[in-house]
């Protein structure tokens, strides 16, 4: 399969996924009981004005047959027109352009930190004795079982309230980023370490590692040239999933550390039942996920062409 064919298939798959997500959202709006215009404007409790309801009807073509509404809905999405957030009274795309980069930076930093921590732990675990290995395994499991919203609180208690080293609120400085990034990274690092340790152990006891030692390479060289590559493959495989779990975690972390971003915007949109905003944010996060998946796929094709093809 050539690179071009691969890219075409990825693009096709991405479009299908986005279309399915959009369709699901369209059906979801239909399923809300009562007046759909009211639903879009925040449900029965929102007490939208007659004027606003009329505007929503016109915008979504609610007086037209369902099929026409569906096509209008898709047409607008295709033009990247997500409408206006009624709660914020601003175009949805403007809000997203503001919050999306912040969340992506947070997630990328956390991903990098989790990888670094996981590699470090996996390498350390190689040298550990039996008790050390058992302890490491326990720490990984607990780390992976810690919910973000609690870890964030504990980190604030320790490093902000008790020690006073770091700010509890994300104030825009580098120091303000440390706790949010750690909160996101630690549980993920627990997951990744589990994966890396297994594949590292397999690689280091494999025939090719023995062959490398028989060539005269030191243990460290075998670790660098062979072990790391094999350890990172399954973790790399999961990067799409990891990124997606980081976006989930970002919702909570942004709330705890009062940091503006996709998650916090989505939460307030959900609380206000601001459907245009929710639609836009959901589609965008799907798009981000698809992009990350394509990227990891490309990296994987570079590291392991045979494995990626199968």
């Amino acid at each position: 399969m050539g690179t071009l064919g691969w890219a075409a298939r990825k693009l096709g798959g991405a479009l299908v996924v986005l279309w399915l997500v959009a369709t699901a959202i369209f059906i979801g709006i239909r399923l809300i009981p009562g007046d759909p215009a009211e639903a879009i404007m925040g449900g029965p409790g929102s007490q939208a004005s007659a004027q606003a309801l009329a505007a929503a009807r016109a915008e979504f073509g609610l007086d037209q047959p369902a099929a026409v509404q569906y096509l209008m809905f898709l047409g607008k999405l295709a033009r990247l027109d997500f409408g206006t957030s009624y709660a914020l009274k601003r175009p949805v795309t403007d809000v997203m352009a503001e919050v999306l980069p912040k969340t992506i930076i947070l997630a990328l930093l956390a991903l990098a930190a989790a990888w670094a921590l996981a590699l470090l732990f996996a390498a350390l675990a190689m040298r550990a004795n039996r008790f050390g290995a058992w302890l490491g395994g326990m720490v990984e499991i607990v780390a992976a079982a810690v919910p973000h919203f609690w870890l964030g609180a504990v980190l604030i208690m320790v490093f902000s309230s008790a020690l006073g080293w770091l700010p509890a609120v994300d104030n825009g400085t580098a120091a303000g980023l440390v706790l949010p990034v750690l909160t996101l990274a630690l549980p993920l690092a627990g997951f990744l370490t589990q994966l890396m340790r297994d594949s590292l152990a397999t690689a280091m006891s494999s025939q090719f590692a023995l062959a490398a030692r028989a060539r005269g390479e030191s243990r460290l060289a075998v670790f660098w040239r062979h072990g790391l590559r094999h350890a990172s493959l399954p973790a790399l495989n999961l990067t799409g999933w990891a990124f997606s779990s980081l976006l989930s975690g970002a919702v909570v972390v942004e709330v705890i550390f009062a940091r503006p971003g996709l998650g916090r915007s989505l939460l307030s949109a959900v609380l206000a039942r601001d459907i245009p905003m929710v639609t836009g944010l959901a589609l965008f996060s799907a798009l981000v996920y698809i992009l990350v998946m394509a990227l990891t796929d490309a990296v994987q094709r570079a590291i392991d062409p045979a494995g990626a093809a199968s």
């Binding site: 025939q207 028989a214 005269g216 390479e217 030191s218």
Partner: peptide
């Protein structure tokens, strides 16, 4: 390490696994 691969070298059994597939 100075002897391995230099004075004494080894051919392993499974050729598929004796060379790093990556």
């Amino acid at each position: 390490q100075g002897i391995r691969g230099n004075a004494v070298s080894m051919i392993l059994q499974d050729a598929l696994m004796a060379l790093d597939p990556l």
